[in-house]
């Protein structure tokens, strides 16, 4: 039985669940976002927008929960043999990911708010808009949302590439400690 909280050698079940749930959600939201903006005007486009927005707000709630959980838990340190610049790169990437996980849904929320569109999360609860109606603000938020998308793609490529490199080339337990199953040494 895996423990819920983090230990000094691995991520606990709580952090793992949040990590993989959000990984799935982020990939889905990015895929939906890419497809929906390129669809012609129509019912399907609007359905995808509704799911994308609901998913975004859910991810925003999850990342806040995740930050609290991280703060309440010990963070398993990076292996000691890691070179300084890699250590710096990993920390930088993780910070960037947290910033992106917050700013991505927030900027989307602003786009929707500035259009004064209602936002009902998965048909369960309607949340209030953040800003007054403003076409200019909406355009700015759209630009930022798109720029953040490419930023996300870039940092995720590094994050996933790094994890795979550690697992398959360096053969350390960096990836394994974010995976359920047997405890690393």
């Amino acid at each position: 039985m895996m423990q819920i909280r983090n230990s000094s050698s691995r991520w606990g079940a709580g952090a793992q669940l949040l990590h993989w749930l959000m990984a799935l959600g982020i990939a889905t939201a990015m895929g939906l976002g890419w497809v929906m903006v390129n669809l012609p005007m129509g019912a399907l486009k609007f359905q995808l927008y509704a799911v994308h927005k609901s998913l975004g707000i859910t991810l925003l709630a999850l990342v806040m929960l995740r930050l609290v959980w991280r703060w309440l838990n010990t963070t398993p340190p990076l292996p000691g043999q890691l070179p300084r610049h890699e250590r710096w790169l990993a920390h930088g990437a993780h910070r960037a990911l947290y910033a992106l996980m917050l700013l991505m849904p927030l900027s989307g929320y602003v786009i929707n708010s500035a259009a004064n569109f209602p936002l009902n999360v998965f048909g369960l609860v309607q949340i209030p808009n953040l800003t007054p109606e403003s076409e200019a603000l909406g355009e700015w938020a759209s630009r930022i949302h798109l720029a953040l998308f490419w930023g996300f793609v870039l940092v995720l490529a590094g994050h996933i590439g790094g994890a795979l490199r550690h697992h398959f080339i360096l053969r350390d337990d960096i990836l394994r400690r974010m995976l359920p199953g047997r405890s690393p040494r």
Binding site: F46, Y49, A50, K53, N116, F117, P118, L119, N120, G123, Q126
Partner: peptide
Amino acid sequence: ATQQGGQF
């Protein structure tokens, strides 16, 4: 009325 399930 409602739009994408949200009321306005």
